[in-house]
């Protein structure tokens, strides 16, 4: 089933330049997609079309079959596609974690018991239930972003969009957040769309879409996308070191560190041990 349908979408902020050019894209329910591209490629602008923060200048975006221009169904669209942003400090409304998580559910006008249930479940889903009464101001970057994920989960979305949510985190925080969203994707069947410029994160997705100059230039499995080392480099992006090493040694089908170890082991055939 398709959760997201992007049809011939073009977008520009001003007359002068087009940010998105005729984008066509569908996202399957339960999938984990990474959208990568350098700064200014249009990847964040595209992401903001997925929950009607931005509306296409031409073409259309459908969330669960609902046209994002349908203002009457805005709540349905936005609660179906939850979004987590880049700067953890700038997206928090409340001073206490559970109030932050409750915010969306309160906006939806839910019953108190239902809000409570969703808050507890969302916090548990991101492993932050012990921090319910703590202030996010005193948390690490990774923890803040997990609270932000829980805050989106309170809408019980089918799809979670992370708009460069790892960009301001340190390696530990990034690993924490990646682990959380992978678990949500696997165990709670939440569709994940991860906007990033970190290749090691993109590698963990089922599908990688590369955007450059407002257009989709590559779309495929991480293995297929990163095999074309020259192309990725020419777009100003990095290639995971395992893939780069394999490429230099003329090995194929290598994406992860373990695969690289196996391929090199095979290549050397025990020599030099």
């Amino acid at each position: 089933m398709k959760i997201l349908n992007v049809e011939n979408v073009s977008f520009s902020y001003s007359e002068k330049e087009t940010v998105l050019k005729d984008i066509n894209l569908t996202i399957e329910k339960g999938s984990f997609t990474a959208i990568i591209g350098c700064n200014g490629s249009g990847k964040s602008t595209l992401a903001k079309h997925f929950n009607a923060i931005l509306l296409p200048k031409s073409g259309a975006v459908y969330v669960k079959g609902i046209d994002t221009r349908d203002e009457k169904r805005l709540f349905e669209i936005r609660s179906a596609a939850g979004m987590v942003f880049q700067n953890p400090d700038n997206q928090m409304v409340a001073a206490i974690a559970e109030d932050e998580v409750a915010f969306a559910a309160e906006n939806l006008g839910l019953e108190r018991n239902e809000i409570r249930r969703r808050v507890d479940e969302s916090l548990r889903a991101v492993g932050m239930e012990e921090y319910a009464l703590e202030s996010p101001a005193h948390m690490s970057g990774g923890q803040k972003q997990r609270i932000a994920v829980a805050a989106a989960l309170a809408m019980e979305p089918e799809c979670l969009i992370l708009d460069e949510s790892t960009a301001m985190l340190d390696p530990q925080g990034r690993a924490e957040l990646m682990q959380t969203i992978k678990k949500l994707n696997r165990e709670n069947n939440i569709t994940v769309i991860l906007i990033t410029h970190y290749m090691d994160e993109a590698v963990q997705a089922d599908r990688v879409i590369v955007i450059d100059g407002g257009e989709i230039v590559t779309d495929g499995t991480p293995r297929a996308v990163f095999e074309d080392v020259e192309k990725i480099r020419s777009l100003g992006l990095d290639v995971p070191q395992a893939a780069e090493l394999a490429h230099e040694l003329g090995l194929t089908g290598v994406l992860t560190a373990d695969e690289c170890v196996n391929a090199v082991d095979k290549l050397l055939g025990g020599a030099g041990r």
């Binding site: 090493l245 170890v261 082991d265």
Partner: peptide, 10 residues
Amino acid sequence: PQVTIIADKL
């Protein structure tokens, strides 16, 4: 770095 890990494993 990923290569450091690969080297360690090899």
